[in-house]
Design a protein around this nucleic acid. Structure first.
Lengths: 340, 340
DNA sequence: CTGAAAGCGCTAACAA
DNA sequence: TTGTTAGCGCTTTCAG
């Protein structure tokens, strides 16, 4: 037998044409059950494997999708990746990993991979977009990061409402001096979470001293640094609403280093509910996003687009968040407590 | 212009043959600099994109590799993924994600993807292998998990020595009653770390009570459970060497719940140096594996195999580990301290 | 229900 | 240096 059998080999052995083999292998109804069986047996016997490149060329599809994130090393994406992968494979698709590292050139490159026919569609989790160029025609679904006015379908959470809920929790505990450490500005995700913070404060009639709004970059170290600045203020906050868990870890770490107890002296709320937030000390109160579900939904949406179905590109799909109240929040210490 | 230009379109416009265009676009030296330039310009003007499926079919390679892990959701793989991805793209390869969830059927499936020509090679990070079937002929590199006697090239760390070093650190601090929580047995990785623990204890002339060797499964909860058992013993340990960081988090969590101070009452050492171990409280003493480097090395090895170079399949590449000593280890409390 | 035949778009022998 | 040509292995009309 030749190195690797092809349809032709099976056809010869079975005494039928390649067309029949192709049909039989794809379980077409246009083949007698009997021949179909015979061909299947023969295929197994010869250890036949279809050549995907040939099939792709012919069918003009690759049965694979691109999943593009800004940093594969970020644990935040894990469950999303998991959701995308699971949904993709259920539909027979493979997932190609893309990593932009915030480099617009790379992002363009991944769009080009779509155009090259490298993949059939893309789930995009970055905040920026290449210069356009007919990209709205491409099968792309944006997850998480809201790209304003992109015209691309997206699935996300309501960051404003979630943030507002988190801050309301702090206010409900009796906190009045609540500071915020935001993610990188002007990314929509950061802005929205900050907006939620502002809304909650405004609704409660609370002032936000300018120095209470710190800008971080979503990384642990910036959580530490921002926290340090906040606690050199003459009137430091009694509670922190931090833009993501990673910075919240940094903040708690720093608070401990400065001798403050969490939540005894300072309460901290995060955002994301990372993998380890429940094992953190103290277990972190944080907004939980349905990450796996986001992945699944985004991929399902992409599958729908790929199947040719019409979808509503304007109205984003918004998934619900939950505030997980754990050990890092408590009422303010009595000496800090002031009634309005 | 037609929907999507192909080489033929460029050829017609340029008044040359498709072969010349193909050569020009791949910057072959067999084309005049002048025509090459002209064709490049034309290609850009027409917004030409090569069709990868056609190319793949013709060249019999896909320029993509498979990266297979047992759980994409596990943060442990992040940096490895990053290393693999980086090295792959530097060489022009894409990375396809594979997720086995410890299901041997899936693992076979990924091997089949190689055989189908879905990808050119594979970096495998799971502990089990399908029934063989000429798999040793396939371009596969095993990272991390040692599959004994597989005949596949692999890159890894010396788990025995690393574990021994970690336990020696505890012994050096004065601990005598040191327990171990292992990963799933009989996986080589778990066995090796346990072996290192045993060696260190033996070398120091220390006994290992049977109950001091707990079996976990590398997950947080099992760290908690094993820890709970250990501290119902009449003579509980004063230090724990835990098979991975995740279980160590669980153990510390449980110790705190039971009212033990870490490291005041009990010291804990982990393995892996996960992303957040330094922000953990107390910052975790743990063995650090060069994860990104492991990914890079494995991918580099695979590239070498794909390029046709001969490599030594017998001798694994062993990368160095470092013991990161942080806040979770200290000398035993005086009332526990006993000289030999 | 089955077969013949025409490509999908590209690369690489072989010729010139 | 360039062109001609023959496929890579598969799917899918179109005829029978």
């Amino acid at each position: 037998m030749r190195e690797r059998p092809k349809i032709k080999d099976i056809a010869e052995r079975a005494g039928v044409s390649v067309a029949t083999v192709s049909r039989a292998l794809s379980d077409s109804a246009l083949v007698t059950a009997e021949t179909r069986q015979r061909i299947h047996d023969l295929a197994r016997e010869l250890n036949y494997r279809p050549n995907v490149s040939a099939r792709n060329l012919r069918t003009r599809r690759t049965m694979s999708v691109l999943l593009v994130v800004r940093d594969v090393g970020n644990p935040f994406y894990l469950d999303i990746l998991k959701g995308v992968e699971a949904t993709a494979r259920e539909a027979g698709y493979s997932v190609l990993m893309g990593n932009t590292e915030n480099d617009p050139a790379r992002e363009t490159e991944y769009f080009n991979m779509l155009r090259y026919g490298h993949a059939d569609g893309m789930v995009l989790m970055t905040g920026k977009l290449p210069p356009s160029g007919g990209r709205n025609q491409l099968p792309v679904v944006v997850a998480l990061e809201m790209i304003e006015g992109s015209g691309l379908p997206h699935v996300q959470v309501d960051n404003i409402a979630a943030a507002r809920g988190a801050v309301e929790h702090l206010i409900g505990l009796g906190h009045r001096r609540i500071a915020h450490i935001s993610g990188p500005v002007p990314e929509p995700m950061s802005l929205h979470r900050r907006e939620g913070y502002r809304e909650a404060m405004r609704n409660a009639g609370l002032d936000i001293p300018e120095a209470y709004e710190m800008r971080g970059d979503f990384l642990l170290e910036s959580g530490q640094e921002c926290c340090r600045s906040l606690f050199t203020l003459p009137e430091p906050p009694t509670a922190l609403f931090v833009g993501n868990d990673e910075m919240a870890y940094g903040a708690v770490h720093e608070l401990r280093r400065m001798g403050h107890d969490v939540p005894g002296d300072v309460s901290v709320v995060g955002f994301d509910d990372l993998y380890l937030s429940k094992a953190f000390y103290p277990p972190l109160t944080t907004v939980s996003q349905p990450r796996t579900e986001i992945g699944r939904t985004a991929m399902a949406m992409l599958l729908k687009i790929l199947s040719g179905a019409e979808i509503n590109r304007e109205e984003p799909i918004v998934l619900p968040t939950v505030l997980n109240i754990r050990g890092s929040t408590a009422p303010p210490a009595s000496n800090y407590c002031m009634s309005p």
